[in-house]
Amino acid sequence: METSNLTKKRIKELIKDDKRMDGRKLLEFRPISVELGISKKAEGSALVKVGDTEVMVGVKLDLKEPFPDTPENGALMVIAELWPLASEKFEMGPPDVQAIELARIIDRSIRESEFINLKKLCIKKGELVWAVNLDIYPLNDAGNLIDASAMATIAAIQTAVFPSIKGDKVKYGELTAKKLPLKNPPIVITFYKIDNKFIIDPTVEEEESSDLRITVAMTFDKAGTHIHALQKSGDEPLDEEEMLKVLDSALKEGKKLSEKISK
């Protein structure tokens, strides 16, 4: 059942006072846990839990001809399958706009942050490169699928190893110890606006009480802070001042999270 208007009103009243139904602060994640190597057939895989939200991601590597405009680059493909296993709100059938948007946000975050060094995935210029296929499967939707998917994708990529090759064919099942060429992972945080305030890591009830969200993908290094992907979604527009405020807290929270991860 869609979140009741009565409950939505209560959520908004609480957020006005910087409080949430489950007692969290506005910018606080639920407990996060990661399980690695959940599918032995994948070259890398992970299951991430954020509260009750669970997302599974698998990495499959194969060899293919590079795209003509990037003859020296490996290929990257991200697909999200919103199987109705994870929520009564999802439906069977080809990916709908929700699944496509989710996959494309993750795609841009990974691609633009150059987390995977695609240039190092070339075997023979113009002829043969590695293709990295990332498949996202939410298993339980309890809110905030975007951030959970990003975490699971990054974790799966970090565990992935190359399979052996013979000629121009992959020998699946025979894994090498060699990991993918990686740089700093992007930090992806989505902010949801409820009653003029922004929260992160919403529950489904909070998601349904919000009419605007902004996803920010960023990296941090010695040169400073870099923003790699942005996505504003939802019916409501936002003004510039608001947007800058969100970015400011995104960078602060992102920095905290990246320091936590590197520990």
Partner: peptide, 17 residues
């Protein structure tokens, strides 16, 4: 009933659907 293989559940990636 809907049975399907996750794309990464097999040796060579299975196209979703």
């Amino acid at each position: 009933c809907y049975y399907d293989l996750a794309s990464f559940s097999v040796a060579e990636r299975k196209r979703p659907g």
